[in-house]
Design a protein around this nucleic acid. Structure first.
Lengths: 210, 210, 210, 210
DNA sequence: AATGAATGAGGCTTCATTCAT
DNA sequence: CATGAATGAAGCCTCATTCAT
């Protein structure tokens, strides 16, 4: 009587739909984007979406899941960066990729807004955030650049501050004119990243000459 | 066809409606909250809303305007605080007022989400943000606590960082369980505020003994 | 957030809608009749139906309730008939009223079909049937025509048989061409009614000369 | 465009599909049961149904045809019963077969409901009914038990009454809780059958001592 | 022969907005 | 000034049907 959710069958279709959904969600918001918008963006019929997702809510949840994966991947890339500064640069510019626009500011802000009234989404986003913060905490703990006492703040505290800044900058990004290119946004983010890094991890002596 | 928008006539009614709208918007989001929800929350009829606002969009805009005022008031209070730390505390806890919950995290996050697709709202929010940042920049420039070179960051840079952290913390606030009280949220925010303050403005010598 | 069901306010509208629904349900069946069909038949907009009924299911339930009332009224009329035969005639021809087409065969058959898969409707219909059968049982118990032992059947048994015949004839009625007039249907029903009456209640001696 | 309706090819497939359809139709009704429901119940794909039936309408028609056959078979069994009472018992309990539930009350009621708005179905059902009534008329005409004048009613009249009762009882059956077993339903039907039989065919003298 | 992915019309329902009272 | 009945467009979702494989 109702067993959609082919789940694994034809994962490409699911991805195709989620890709389209991301575009629509970023453009209009979760609840303003219609299923028709998504199907049109994906180049398929409305009905087909329902073979892969139980309903719109499920599309949103899947997008949230995908966000989790993307943050994971971003974290992995950050982990493999040669320096702490470069790790932070990755963290702060993840949403500024012209060609692979996976993490999109507007989408993320909407995701948090949704979290505020959708407990399952809130759980997931909270989990993502915590995982990412833990990752950065570890990154800091291992970084030689961070070995000097940084004003008495623990790696955990620092990670929290860093993420707050990153999320705040994401909110600001949403205010920038749509015409601004990914490259310009990126430049803007890097400025802040470097300032933050200098503040948090540069030794006094170095600062003096910076 | 008609001439609604009595604009100034009976400002109490407008406030009453906006009060109700804030509750509804925070609870369900701009576009999920229906005009009926708002009228019910305000204890009036749907039609009456249209005597004071041209349409739903106008209610949203008015809410954005109100947000501007609230941020202004918050800034004024911050200006009058006896110390920079206390100014920051005001800035970071503006949304944690049990009795007068004007600035509400969920509402603000929704406002930024709306800004990402509604240029007039974006303009207004950008303006609010810039004004507030300018205010904090000035606060820093005048604060004796900030007279020492803080890692070579200008007051403007510092204000931007501070606001990014504040907005990021607002996003995090949205993830906290609804059961958490204003007092608890406030405590959480103050922790971060103090850490940030110590990082930005405490002199090395002081830090050593902190 | 959801409080339709003005329930008592403007009962005329409710009746108007139910009148239209009866026509549509009889014409196309509960689930084939669309809300648009009903609104068009009632000469109102679709949305308006939802001010008076929570959803389509509620319209169906209200129709079932109305059926209960109609059967009640029918029973009352039967009770006031001067003879048992005339009571039965009322019972068997209730659905053959040109101008006041309240009890309609197709609708009733659909109602029973619905009852088979909708427990609340089943409860209601069962209750209606039982009440009506009790009424007829009492009618028989009090009728002088029924005083002679009728083949050893109790009034209860007789009432059950009578109702079975009445419902069976209703099913047959549904097979008759739509062109057949109410008068013709009525004639057909009266034939059966009289035969049944003769069988159940006429004394042997009378039968011989009938 | 294509040429479905292999008609006779692979009659087993057709039966398999109709078996599944009966289950679904009884459970949900003709129009509430989806083609997918039927295919799932039959354990085949949706598309395959269309190799054997032109469309859903055709499935319904085929079910009606099958009903015709089942009534035929039932009639045949009734004809071969050793007594008129036993014939009637077969007639009244045809739908109470635990293992081979071919004639199902809910289905039959739905069939009549469908007949009321689908002329071809009405024609068929009317034909089935007439044929069956003719059969019973003949049964009565030949039965020694019915040789005594039964209140002046002709075999035709009696057959009509009998069928009305049978169909009426079918409608009542639909109201009984789903938990009731076939055996219990059967018992209920037999009670009525015997009462009816006694009323119609038992001689006065016999009745006196019954 | 058989599958099930794909389509898209159509049904139910909501909601911003209007307007007679 | 205030009400809330009324409208109808639009959104979500289902399902009969087709067709490439």
């Amino acid at each position: 009587m109702s067993q959609p959710q082919i789940e694994s069958s034809n994962p490409d279709r699911r991805s195709q739909i989620l890709d389209a959904a991301l575009v629509c969600f970023a453009k209009r918001g979760f609840h303003q984007a219609s299923m028709h918008d998504i199907s049109a963006e994906a180049g398929i019929s409305v009905g087909l979406i329902y073979r892969y997702f139980e309903n719109k809510e499920a599309v949103i949840s899947a997008m949230a899941d995908r966000h989790k994966q993307e943050i994971s991947e971003m974290l992995e890339r950050a982990r493999q960066a040669p320096s702490l500064l470069e790790s932070l640069e990755i963290l702060f510019t993840a949403h500024c990729c012209e060609n692979e626009p996976r993490v999109i500011s507007a989408f993320v802000v909407d995701l948090y807004a949704e979290a505020s009234r959708n407990p399952p989404v809130a759980d997931l986003v909270r989990d993502v955030l915590q995982t990412a913060m833990d990752g950065v905490t570890e990154l800091i703990a291992r970084a030689p650049e961070a070995q000097n006492a940084t004003n008495g703040l623990s790696p955990t505290d620092l990670a929290e501050l860093i993420f707050a800044v990153a999320r705040g900058m994401l909110m600001f990004d949403v205010l920038r004119p749509h015409e601004m290119t990914a490259a310009e946004r990126r430049e803007r983010q890097l400025d802040v990243t470097r300032r933050l890094w200098r503040l948090l991890f540069k030794r006094e002596a170095e600062v003096a000459y910076a």
